[in-house]
Each structure stands twice: as structure tokens, then as C-alpha cells.
Computed example of a mutant assay.
Amino acid sequence: MEQVSVHVTAWYQDLDNVREWFPAASGQKILSEREIESDLRALRSALNETEINRYRALCRDTAALMTQVLSAARSDDSEFDVAAKLTAGAIAQGGEVLVALVSGDSRAAARHPLPTAAPLGGKAMAVLCVRRHGLIANITRWVRFGAPTPQELSGEDDILAVEADILAAIRPGGVLGELLPVIQGSYPEHGFDAGEWSLHHQGGIAGYNGRDPRLTPGATDLFQLNQAFAFNPSAARDGLAFKVEDTMLLTESGDFEVLTFDPLWPSNLVNGLPRPAVLQR
């Protein structure tokens, strides 16, 4: 059995200067985290049973919180109001809020909307990223006050179709970066501008980082069973904004499980998966 040595340092010492507090390493090459980053990701990416159970619990709690807050929201509530309730609720559940975004219809064009004092208006989007036990749940939901237009309903269906194309392209042993051409082709195929993929990140592998890693050109991380994902295609059309995001698990059977599914939130089946509809108020 290998021995582990504990080195106590003062709070003001430079931890990166390893040779100062661990002289025995003076003749060794000290690897930076960046040099072994991909190896570390591969080791933590396939989740074990304990991790999966913790993730399910976190994602259920986060999804239920989103349902609770948006079900009680009013059109004259401010973005600040909704973000505050989501944040307080997540903390009460033992979570650490990494991202809490809200945009009312006056700021629908914002892809990553930090909340403001603006009212929700006719339609609003809320985004939560919550960490607990190291794992991070990612979720986006929409609420609408009033009747939808045909353009809204069409766009909501089409953004789910883009997401469906992404999920259909994931197979164990595949490479993350190979999804990018799929996404680039999917937007125009479903009636969105071909450049939409470049206007906001598209998500990626999930787990112990918000994206672990984010999908970028040339990403070499492999898809594995028991691996989590959170993709978030977003687009604008006819002056309207559309986005979908859930945390999912690629299970042992090769199927996806929507971890952030809440049975109280309205949903529709897309390729056998429950996908979130807009909450109609």
C-alpha cells in the first residue's frame, strides 16, 4: 500500500511552489492540472451507483423547485424576484447556486440573462445550475402568461427537434467534438439561422463541472455509459427566443434518463423522452 504524506503549510504560502514545501519533489516533474485534465475527466465521467443516486436526488429537487417557483410567478414579478426565490429554494435544499438566470419578454434576446428589475411580462425564461455533493444540475424552463402565437408554438417544437438530433447522435465510444457538425446542420434543417450554434455554447458532458467539458470544435472526450449530459440549444426566430436544457444520464441500457424531469411540469414525448413544454399560466 502506498503511503500518503500530509504537508501543512501556512495560509499565505504559495501552494504552486511545490518544491518549497515538498523538497523531495525537487528532482521530479510536477504535472499541472491542465496536463492531466482529460485523464481526470475520463476517470470521473462515468458515474457509479452512489453518484447516480445523489445526482437523481439533486436533479429532482432542482426541477421541483423550478416548478414551484414558476407556478407561483406572476407577469408583473421582476426577474430579480424569481431569481431570488430560485436561489433561496436551492440553498434551502442544501445546494450551492452557480447560475440563476431570468429573462422576461423585454429581454428575450439575451442568451445568458443576468436578472434585472424588469418584469416577466408575457413570457419568461429561468435557468438554474445547482451543485450538491460536487455534482451539478442544469435546467432551463419557460413560463407564459397569455395565449401563445403559432410562431411561438412552432419555434418551441423546432428547438426540441434540434435537441433530439443531438441526442440521437450520441453513442458510447463516440467523440464529443463529432457532435458539432450535427448541431450545425440541425439548426437550418429545423428552420433556424445556420449561425445560431455560434451565438451561445451548446452544452456538453455534465457532472462535476457545469460542463465537463463543454462541446467545442475538436473536443476529444469519449461518450460512456453512466455519463451525464446537459445540452442547451438556443435560437431566435421571428423576434422570439427559444431554448431547452435538462440534465440527462446515458444509462447502462444505452437510453437517456431525464434527471431533471418533474412530473408536475407539462411535458411532451419526443423520441420517447419527456421534454418540457412551456408552463401556460
Results as ranks from 00 to 15, higher is better:
82 V>C: 05
63 A>R: 07
129 C>E: 15
53 N>K: 13
118 A>C: 01
84 A>G: 01
75 S>Q: 10
86 L>T: 02
112 H>N: 12
108 A>Y: 14
72 A>G: 00
73 A>N: 02
74 R>A: 03
58 L>F: 00
109 A>M: 13
117 A>V: 12
109 A>W: 14
129 C>Q: 13
126 A>T: 02
64 A>D: 13
56 R>N: 09
84 A>W: 09
83 A>K: 08
68 Q>N: 11
88 A>K: 13
118 A>N: 06
75 S>F: 06
109 A>S: 14
127 V>L: 14
75 S>K: 08
108 A>H: 14
73 A>F: 00
117 A>R: 12
109 A>D: 14
74 R>L: 04
79 E>C: 02
83 A>V: 04
112 H>I: 13
82 V>W: 07
120 L>W: 04
82 V>F: 06
108 A>P: 03
71 S>L: 00
115 P>D: 00
113 P>R: 07
69 V>Q: 06
72 A>N: 02
86 L>S: 01
85 K>T: 07
54 R>T: 12
70 L>F: 06
54 R>Y: 10
119 P>R: 02
124 A>W: 08
113 P>Q: 09
84 A>F: 09
56 R>H: 10
53 N>W: 06
98 L>P: 13
123 K>H: 11
130 V>E: 03
91 I>S: 05
52 I>Q: 11
116 T>Y: 03
110 A>R: 11
127 V>W: 10
